[in-house]
Write a protein that binds this DNA or RNA. Sequence first.
RNA 1: GGAGAGAUGGCAGAGUGGUCGAAUGCGGUCGUCUUGAAAACGACAGACCCGUGAGGGUCCGUGGGUUCGAAUCCCACUCUCUCCUCCA
Length: 422
Amino acid sequence: MLDIKLLREQPEWVKAQLARTGTDGTLVDEVLAFDEQRRRLLQEVESLKAERNAASKAISKMQDAAQRDLRIAEMRVVGDRIAALDRAVAEVEAAQRLALLSIRNLPHPDVPDGASEDENVVLMQSGELRAFDFGPKPHWELGEALGWLDFERGVKLAGSRFYLLRGNGARLQRALIQWLLDLHGQQGYSEVYTPFVVKEQCMWGAGQLPKFRDNLYRDEDAGLWLVPTAEVPVTNIYADEILDAAQLPIYLCAYTPCFRREQMSAGRDVRGIKRGHQFDKVEMYMFVRPEESAAALEKLREDAAETCRLLGIPYRIKALCTGDLGAAATRTYDLELWSPGVQEWLEVSSCSNVEAYQARRANIRYRPEPGARPDFVHTLNGSGLGVPRTMIAIMENYQQPDGSIAVPDVLQPYLGGTQFLT
RNA sequence: GGAGAGAUGGCAGAGUGGUCGAAUGCGGUCGUCUUGAAAACGACAGACCCGUGAGGGUCCGUGGGUUCGAAUCCCACUCUCUCCUCCA
């Protein structure tokens, strides 16, 4: 959510920033129209309330019964008027808030302008692409041959885009998750285990609603929503709280499964495990003082890059352009692992500084100094890493001519020292 | 799932229609005293909204109702605790 004061004071500038992302400024005008209406109503109703408060006080002290009854009759009319105005204010406020919640975040000035993902900027690439003396296979062929991936049974259980991981495939994934969590612990992130379902309020707080309603699973009876990313529960941990400045920064990491309906990507990435309705992810998350968030994003990116480096897989880092930036982000780096089987760079991490966008929605504040007014924190999130795509990259980069998979050095201790998995 | 109790400021806790944004204690900040600290004493101190300002308004779990006026009365809901029941 943007600061309403920013919209009031610099509406044209805000619209210009939105235009950089290909968003028109209609909602800005809508918010401001509601804002004007709301303030007009507020001034009227509040002066009536002031009158009522004064009159109530006076009535309690009146001795003359006739005079008192007269005044009470007068105030009955005022009370009705107040009730009607209060309802009108609530309606306008709700409409204004919905419009404000629907406006995306503004891009950071340094974000490269561009219309689509084609104009993202590759900042660096690291690691040698492996030279194969045989034709590298895609992971679905490797996985089915090894008995690790069972697509048919997954579909039988839950429908398309679901699969089973079996045997050493399941063990490799478990090892990967545990290694990622341990590594992030060393990098300074404290591990947190969260609910995998959340209240609707949390979806608004993290910015999933109203925009991504169609992409979310929910249990209507229970009023609970399945998390599409750990970012959702973690963001809301400190919702409606005022943190001590001394507590900041807070670095957290969390493993969760992620559930996404993928209604918008029908027909895309249907082979293999690149895009499922359920996938695992380890997430890094930061709550920081506003002045620290720019540097925090660099740390986040470096920490994600370290995981790629330690896995020994070629990776590259992209700066997303304005046209590809997520709705909540001011600035995002994507990390991609090279996968020789499918011959593509796989997005395994997205590191974003959302500044106060989520903090304002979820009402997460901190007190800069003792006794000072609270202010919103900045939050950042980054995958570390998306698990299935990392699995793809491991399988395809470490595949052997006989179809077995070499285990990256860092994962061997998590698999009893095993060097090759079959 | 059943029965009962409860939800008030950072914490504990009083308050059953107007004098309550709210006693008191602890904690907090500042000051006095002190070489320094502690103790003692004194003062200050919530969040949000409207207003250039003076000032005004809202907030006692949430939502609704009664009333000229609600922390206080009524209704619904949510959550917490205790006991019973059941189950990883």
